[in-house]
């Protein structure tokens, strides 16, 4: 026999289900007023420093149908690459946003500040990116991915560099459409499947 490992197993995930909005975005579910306002409606205040960008897109299932019941969450650094809570972070950036696909069109909108570069532990510079987490009915464990920007230099990014099939890198890059707007569609399965991360 050997000593017992004392580490615990993580609580298993379960799908957020079709009514995730009740708990996370009560106003969307028709429960407006239970809290003064829904949590994390914006990742920035009007005082945020940097370039304001708007990202739009949809989450498509394996048949090409846009999910109407997805819940998305984003987390990012400020314009100088400092995460909220770290020394020197921009007080105008809360960094966290929670948003839904529109119940009719399936399109989401994220208005935020473009983040700066962030270094990995071994000093490599990651290109500006926003971390994204997606849950919905039918998704048993939340899916993690990143939004990079098509008008930034992404060539040296150490995460993108680890994607073996180079055409798949494009699935993580938001396409600039002018006027600070970007398109970032997420394909859960099949042709053009988005790269999902396990980090």
């Amino acid at each position: 026999m050997v000593q017992k490992l004392t580490t615990l197993m993580e609580t298993p995930s379960q799908t957020a289900g079709p009514y995730v909005h009740i708990g996370c975005v009560p106003t969307f579910a028709g429960l407006g007023g239970i809290y003064p306002e829904d949590l994390a409606l914006s990742p920035i205040t009007d005082a945020a420093k940097g370039e304001i960008v708007t990202i739009k897109g949809s989450v498509y299932d394996g048949t090409g149908w846009a999910l109407r019941d997805a819940l998305l969450e984003s987390w990012q650094a400020d314009a100088r690459g400092i995460y909220p809570g770290q020394p020197g972070a921009d007080p105008g950036v809360t960094g966290f946003c929670r948003f839904t696909a529109d119940k009719d069109s399936g399109e989401y909108t994220l208005r935020t500040v473009k983040p700066g570069t962030v270094k990995t532990r071994d000093g490599k510079v990651m290109a500006p990116h926003i971390s994204l987490w997606i849950v919905a009915r039918g998704i048993n464990i939340g899916l993690s991915t990143r939004i990079y920007f098509g008008d930034e230099d992404n060539d040296a990014d150490p995460i993108l560099a680890r994607i073996e099939q180079r055409p798949r890198v494009d699935t993580l890059i938001a396409k600039p459409e002018g006027d600070g707007t970007y398109r970032f569609d997420i394909r859960l399965q099949g042709e053009g499947e988005t790269v999902f991360l396990d980090m």
């Binding site: 650094a77 962030v118 532990r121 971390s131 680890r162 790269v195 991360l197």
Partner: peptide, 10 residues
């Protein structure tokens, strides 16, 4: 999934 060490982003 693409499995990598966590970074400050995570």
């Amino acid at each position: 999934l693409l499995s990598l060490d966590s970074t400050p982003s995570e």
